[in-house]
Each structure stands twice: as structure tokens, then as C-alpha cells.
């Protein structure tokens, strides 16, 4: 059984509000899926369906081949780790006590508590009350909690909110390690920069529907957004500058004289060759559309708005 999560045409309504509509989603072993969307796009509902906290109004949810609300739910929950958004743990307990409590509930061995505290960098703070923890420390404690019992499925809701850049990198490193061990990870986020390198596939949700899904490269291809080439050039006359823009959809000159060319993805190599042959080009860099741009693109399509992507 390689498939960790499978959602088939899943819908969920709250009264007359359709929170999710015919959603298809898959997560394989050792895969990291980025689940992106606005507040209210259906991310939390999706997570709750996978955790078995909510029942789907239509469609089938399968986790490790089982129904998360069925007979095997208890066993599934022991194999699942979850970090909710904005969780504040019991302030009066120490970090170690909090983790021990959750470890007992999850039937994880108590020696795992020490190891996990070490792993998230809370060993020294383990005997302090959670009340004294910083936002980042609380988040690490939450992460340690999610890792109890070696989960095969990990659901992380905004795991890097409130973390400094170093701690953020630690979290991503941890996700990489888990993926290598075969854990399936669903990463919910609207904080996009930096996350790209750590996710295998992206699913973009908007108003309860799946707007796009696939690898980042596939999404780039699907979106067909122009890429940008930044060129620094010296000693070129007007005509030569004009010639640079031959392949470009649009040419823009920044304040410091850097020329930014918007190029169709399929014209990329031709444009680069032309630039290399051009006189006076000192430096150039290629910027492919970021995940953020892609997200804005697909989200914008959903809103039937014309996005001014330059």
C-alpha cells in the first residue's frame, strides 16, 4: 500500500455552504504535498476530513487504505501526526510533561519524549513551563508532538508561522528527513517563499475546489507564465538595446539601468543565445516564476480576474 491519502470526488457542506466540492487528492509514500489556499479555501476542512474529525458529505476518503472514520480509525490515528495552526499547549505544564501526556495518549514509548525534545532543540527548556516559551519554542513543541509514534502521515498546518529563519530551515530539514524515511507529508501554508524546494507536489485550493495540482514544473508549464531575464549591459547604443528585446514580450528598464525582459518559456534558449552574442552584456540572471506567482496566477484565474503578470 503505497498510497497514503486518497480523496475521491470528496465534497463537504456545512448547511448551505459548500466548503469542499468534488476534491481529488493523492499522497504517496515519501511525498511532500503543499496544500495552498486562502483562508476559507477549504484547507482546514480537507485536513479534518483526512483526520476523520469530519465526515464527507459525498465521496470517499481513504487513509492508508482505510476509512478514517471507520473501524480502523484508532490504529490510523496512531500512525498520523498533526500540528494544528495556532495551538497553545497547557501553560502550567513543562514541555516534557506536555509531550509525555500526548505520548501516553498516542501509546508512544515514553523514551521517545526525550529524543524528540532533543531533536526539535528543546532539551534545555524541557523542564520549564510552557508559559515561558517563545512562539517558536511552542511551535517546535507542537512539531515534536506531531512526530510522536513515528507517523506514516504527517499533517502540518502552517508549521513555520512565527519561526525565525533558522528555525524555519530546521523545520524544512526535518521534513526532508521524514520524506526520505517514507513519511507522507501534507504541508498547509500560505507562507510561500522558501517552501518550494521542500515540496514535491502542490495542490492549490480556492473556494472549496481544486484549482490546480501537480509538480511545480508541471504547474509552470500549465500556467505558461513568462520568465524574466535580468540583463546588465554597458556601452550599448539605443539600437543595440532595442535588439535585445527582440524575443521579449515586454522590456522594462529599472532605475539602476538593469534591463528586465519578459520571455515566453519556449523562447528561453533562443533569447539567452541572442543575449550571449550581444555586445556589452556584463551579467544576466534568469528568474522562473516562483510558487507565489503561480499561486497568484491560478487563484486569479479562479476569480475571473485578469492578473497583471508583467
Amino acid at each position: 500500500m503505497n498510497r497514503i491519502v486518497e480523496l475521491n470526488q470528496v465534497s463537504r457542506a456545512f448547511g448551505r455552504i459548500q466548503a469542499l466540492e468534488r476534491l481529488d487528492l493523492r499522497l504517496e509514500t515519501g511525498e511532500v504535498l503543499g496544500l495552498l489556499g486562502h483562508n476559507g479555501a477549504g484547507k482546514s476542512t480537507t485536513i479534518k476530513l483526512i483526520l476523520g474529525i469530519l465526515a464527507a458529505t459525498a465521496g470517499a476518503v481513504r487513509v492508508l487504505g482505510e476509512d478514517p472514520r471507520g473501524r480502523g480509525a484508532g490504529r490510523l490515528r496512531m500512525a498520523t501526526g498533526y500540528l494544528p495552526e495556532n495551538v497553545s499547549f497547557y501553560d502550567n505544564l513543562t514541555g516534557r510533561e506536555v509531550l509525555q501526556y500526548f505520548a501516553r495518549l498516542k501509546r508512544a514509548p515514553t523514551r521517545a519524549v526525550g529524543e524528540l525534545l532533543e531533536r526539535v532543540g528543546l532539551r534545555e527548556a524541557a523542564h520549564r513551563r510552557v508559559r515561558t516559551y517563545s512562539k517558536g519554542m511552542r511551535q517546535r513543541l507542537g512539531l515534536a508532538q506531531a512526530l510522536l509514534g513515528h507517523p506514516r502521515l504527517l499533517l502540518l498546518d502552517e508549521p513555520t508561522v512565527g519561526l525565525d529563519p533558522m528555525a524555519t530551515r530546521d523545520v524544512y530539514d526535518m521534513i526532508d528527513t521524514l520524506r526520505d524515511r517514507g513519511t507522507g507529508v501534507i504541508l498547509c501554508s500560505h507562507v510561500l517563499p522558501g517552501v518550494e524546494r521542500h515540496i514535491d507536489r502542490v495542490a492549490i485550493l480556492g473556494r472549496g475546489r481544486l484549482l490546480a495540482s501537480g509538480t511545480i514544473d508541471a504547474l509552470r508549464e500549465q500556467a505558461g507564465l513568462p520568465l524574466h531575464i535580468r540583463v546588465r549591459i554597458t556601452g550599448a547604443n539605443g539600437a543595440q538595446r532595442q535588439a535585445l528585446g527582440a524575443n521579449a514580450l515586454e522590456t522594462r528598464v529599472e532605475d539602476d539601468g538593469t534591463i528586465v525582459l519578459s520571455i515566453r518559456p519556449e523562447c528561453k534558449m533562443a533569447a539567452l543565445q541572442a543575449l550571449l552574442a550581444a555586445p556589452g552584456v556584463e551579467d544576466l540572471s534568469v528568474e522562473t516564476p516562483t510558487l507565489e506567482t503561480l499561486y497568484a496566477h491560478f487563484d486569479g484565474l479562479d476569480g475571473r480576474r485578469e492578473q497583471p503578470h508583467a
Binding site: 483526520l51 474529525i53 490504529r75 498533526y82 495556532n86 495551538v87 499547549f89 495518549l105 498516542k106 508532538q145
Partner: peptide, 13 residues
């Protein structure tokens, strides 16, 4: 309010 209820609901409990 603390968010731990949602978390506990994801536990085998």
C-alpha cells in the same frame, strides 16, 4: 479556545 481540543480529536481518543 487553546486549539488542543482539535489536536486531541486527531488522537486515538
Amino acid at each position: 479556545e487553546g486549539g488542543t481540543l482539535l489536536l486531541l480529536m486527531s488522537y486515538p481518543l
